[in-house]
């Protein structure tokens, strides 16, 4: 049990980091913080992949002259390169949405915003503010 635990304890750290990130996404109501949480979450997932790719005593997967060198697995590296870029794309899009939300609502706290939305929604439904047709000639 102990020996096997030593072999995998690294995973546990990675899992803890992941869950902290996930908690930030789900638990926090601040829109910026959620994005930060997402970044942490994704970075930790990258760590998981790279950990899989590691070989004890291996070298980075760049061919060298010595014949008997063991190379770490390049495939996870490639996948994670892709995932990092996908991650930054998500972050950028999320940030731009947060900016727009802040301009429109004056807040980026979910509680605030849903309260405003609720008022808006009821205004529309009950008082029929939006009933006006676009009368065009």
């Amino acid at each position: 049990m102990i020996s096997s635990t030593i072999g995998i304890w690294n995973y546990w750290i990675v899992f803890c980091l992941m869950m902290i990130g996930l908690f930030l996404v789900m638990g926090r109501k601040n829109f910026l913080k959620k994005i930060v949480g997402l970044t942490i979450f994704q970075t930790s997932v990258f760590l998981l992949y790279i950990t899989f790719g590691k070989i004890k005593g291996g070298t980075p997967p760049i061919l060298n002259e010595s014949i008997d060198s063991i190379y770490s697995n390049p495939l996870p590296h490639v996948l994670i390169l892709t995932a990092i870029v996908v991650g930054v794309a998500t972050t950028a899009l999320g940030l731009s949405l947060v900016l727009r939300i802040n301009t429109e609502y004056g807040s980026i706290e979910e509680d605030d915003i849903s309260a405003q939305d609720l008022v808006d929604y009821h205004d529309d439904i009950e008082t029929g503010k939006s009933v006006d047709f676009k009368f065009k000639q």
Binding site: V85, A92, L95, S96, L99, N102, T103
Partner: peptide, 22 residues
């Protein structure tokens, strides 16, 4: 693509001015 997207992103964020909005 990457370099241009990054420049575009930076420009878009940096020149986003909420006073002109609306």
């Amino acid at each position: 693509t990457v370099s241009n997207v990054m420049i575009a992103l930076f420009n878009a964020f940096a020149s986003y001015d909420k006073i002109k909005e609306k």
